[in-house]
Simulated scan of single mutants.
Amino acid sequence: MPDGGYYAKVPRSESIEAVRRALYRHSAVSDYKEITPQLYEISRIGRSAVKLYVTNVYTVGMADVQEILEENPSVTCILTVSAWNSYTGRAKEYAKSINVGLFRFYEWLGALNYDGDKLLDYIAPSERDD
């Protein structure tokens, strides 16, 4: 791997820029503060604030969720940003059980419109069983 594994967890600059653009354009977002390129405080219109952690882990597992939250205990949402990234079902359920949302990029965009269980349980329209 030419980058020495650096991007295994830290998103590429173009992915971070995509997150910034999405936050700037999202109709539910009133403002956001970039604490680091991986950590954001997001104020939302008529909804609770979100503290977002952005990662580039290819498949986020339980250990990844635990590591992220150990280093950033106030995080309420975790986003694995690249389009081909995902997470395990066990990691998703674990995060939900401790009131943390775990999302792929397109899921996160929809989830930002909700609070509470609706945020945690958000399923993108393309993934829903009709």
Rank of each mutant, 00 (worst) to 15 (best):
M1R: 02
M1G: 15
M1F: 11
P2F: 14
D3I: 04
G5I: 00
A8H: 06
A8S: 11
S13G: 04
E14P: 00
E14M: 03
S15C: 05
S15L: 13
I16W: 02
I16Q: 12
A18D: 09
A18E: 12
V19L: 12
R20L: 15
R21G: 03
A22L: 12
A22D: 07
A22P: 00
L23T: 03
R25N: 08
S27E: 08
S27T: 03
A28T: 06
A28C: 07
A28E: 07
V29F: 05
S30L: 05
S30Y: 02
D31W: 09
K33Y: 13
K33F: 14
E34P: 01
T36C: 06
T36M: 06
P37Q: 08
P37Y: 12
Q38N: 12
L39F: 10
Y40F: 15
Y40K: 00
E41D: 11
E41C: 01
I42S: 04
I42N: 03
I42H: 03
S43K: 05
S43T: 04
S43P: 00
R44D: 09
R44P: 06
R47I: 09
V50Y: 04
K51E: 09
K51I: 15
V54Y: 10
V54R: 01
V57C: 06
Y58T: 03
V60G: 05
G61H: 03
G61I: 04
D64A: 06
D64N: 10
D64S: 05
V65A: 07
Q66C: 03
L69W: 09
E70F: 10
N72W: 08
N72Q: 02
P73N: 02
S74H: 11
T76P: 11
C77E: 15
C77Y: 09
C77T: 13
I78T: 05
L79F: 14
V81L: 08
S82L: 08
W84M: 02
N85D: 10
Y87D: 02
Y87P: 00
G89C: 04
R90F: 14
A91Y: 12
A91L: 12
A91D: 10
K92H: 15
E93I: 13
E93R: 10
Y94S: 06
Y94I: 11
A95V: 11
K96L: 14
K96D: 14
I98A: 10
V100F: 13
L102H: 08
L102Q: 05
F103M: 04
R104Q: 13
R104C: 12
R104W: 05
F105N: 00
W108N: 01
W108V: 02
W108Q: 01
L109W: 10
L109K: 07
A111M: 11
A111F: 13
L112Q: 04
L112W: 10
N113F: 11
N113Q: 07
Y114D: 10
D117K: 08
D117P: 01
D117R: 07
L120E: 14
I123M: 14
A124I: 06
S126T: 04
E127P: 00
R128M: 12
D129G: 04
D130A: 09
